[in-house]
Simulated scan of single mutants.
Amino acid sequence: MSEEKKILVTLDGSKRSGRTVDYLCRFKPFRDRKITLFNITTPVPEAYYDLIRDSFSKIAVSQVNAWEMGRKTIMTEFLKEARRKMIAAGYKSDNIELKLTSLEKGVARDILNEIKTNEYHGLVIRRRGSSESMPGVTMGGVAAKLVEKASSLPLMIAGTHEIHHYLCIAVDGSPASGRAIHYTADMMAKTNCRILLCAIMRTTVTDSVPEGKDPFVDMSLQAKRILDEALAEAKQILTQAGIPEDRIETRLIQGAQSRAGALLDKARAAKCDTIVMGRKGVSDVEDFDLGRIPKKIIYASRKFTIWLIP
């Protein structure tokens, strides 16, 4: 991955994407990264231009042309204003690129193509955009497709919680969880952020329980040891990155009926603003691009910012 560590940010000119810009301005670690503000404009269907053959439709065609040019002008100004806000918030002007392209295959597919043809260190999106404002819908169509398919790089789903740089990291001992910890350590290195390392198990067991009498208890003890070791290793990785030890808290939650629910409850109680997870857990089923627990958390947490690490 490139040392420039570029982050792709999708914006559509809506009020919601304006809140994405606010998130970028408030989240201090991004200020040292190269940012590409990206928009895909939807052109007028080519069928409209067939009207030019009809002399009675020339006025309509000119109006359509004007609309298309006007839309590009509006989006260009929106991106420039976003850039101005980010510079005022502390970003270097040379680190912000504006990229405006026309729709080719579809919004989600064009974003995925942009990822494939360029080297990015992360993708920032919102749950819904300007055309996806149906009340009660948690995730818009484009966002849902990107959550499922943008599996090659870290995905950040910007939330609405006030940013206090307090991150809750789901720890389960899996390779994806380890990569999430390393990514967080890289992003938050030498900052005064707060980190909550949270591991969850369904059973309840203590180290004082004797082994060898009940296979179920033995399995629970082994699971607990794995999670304890994973929490200790995660804390070490973060402290080595320069995050003060007293800013890192570890929690092992036992007896959880729902691991996704328990993680959300703990993050809410601690007043974290961001939840960090690996895309897949311990099971790591190859046929699925997204694990069951991350999917539940994404759809149940409208206000949290979610980091999803491959």
Rank of each mutant, 00 (worst) to 15 (best):
A143C: 15
L103C: 08
P135S: 03
V61Y: 12
T76F: 04
L37K: 01
V124E: 10
K58N: 12
D32R: 09
V61M: 12
L37M: 12
S93M: 03
V61D: 15
P45T: 07
A82R: 01
R83H: 05
M86S: 10
I96G: 11
K72A: 07
F78N: 07
T76R: 06
A66W: 04
K105Y: 13
I115F: 01
G70F: 02
E97T: 12
F56Y: 15
P45A: 01
G70W: 04
T138I: 15
F78C: 06
S93H: 04
I59W: 13
L112I: 04
I125C: 11
I96V: 12
S130T: 14
A88W: 12
A60K: 11
I59M: 15
H121R: 07
K80E: 14
I52K: 02
A47V: 03
D110C: 08
K99A: 10
I40Q: 00
T101W: 07
L123E: 05
Y91A: 02
G122M: 09
M69I: 10
T42M: 12
R127F: 14
N65E: 14
S102D: 14
M75A: 00
T42P: 07
L146T: 13
F38Q: 01
I59G: 13
V44L: 06
G70H: 05
H121E: 14
T73F: 05
I40H: 04
E46M: 08
N95A: 13
K99T: 12
Q63C: 11
A143I: 11
K99H: 08
T41Y: 04
A47S: 03
L79T: 01
V124Q: 02
N113D: 06
K99E: 08
A144N: 15
L112Y: 06
R127T: 14
V124C: 05
I40M: 01
K34L: 09
D110S: 08
G140N: 06
S133I: 10
A60T: 11
N118V: 08
G90D: 07
P43F: 08
E132P: 12
M134C: 15
E77M: 01
R33D: 06
L146I: 13
F56E: 15
I125Q: 00
K105I: 10
A66S: 12
L103Y: 04
R53S: 07
F38R: 01
F38T: 04
G90H: 00
K145Q: 12
G122N: 05
N118H: 10
V44S: 10
R83A: 04
P45Y: 04
E77R: 02
A47F: 03
K34E: 07
R53Q: 05
E114W: 05
E104F: 08
G106P: 09
F78P: 12
T76P: 13
P45G: 05
L51K: 06
G106R: 02
R83E: 02
L100P: 10
I40W: 02
V137W: 05
S55Q: 14
A144K: 11
I115N: 00
T138C: 08
L112F: 09
L100S: 05
L123I: 00
N65M: 11
S62D: 15
S102M: 10
G90S: 03
A108C: 03
L98N: 00
N118E: 09
T138S: 09
V142C: 03
S102R: 10
E119M: 02
T101M: 11
Y91D: 00
Q63I: 12
L37S: 13
S133Y: 10
D94Q: 13
L98W: 01
E97Q: 07
I35R: 03
Y120E: 00
D94G: 14
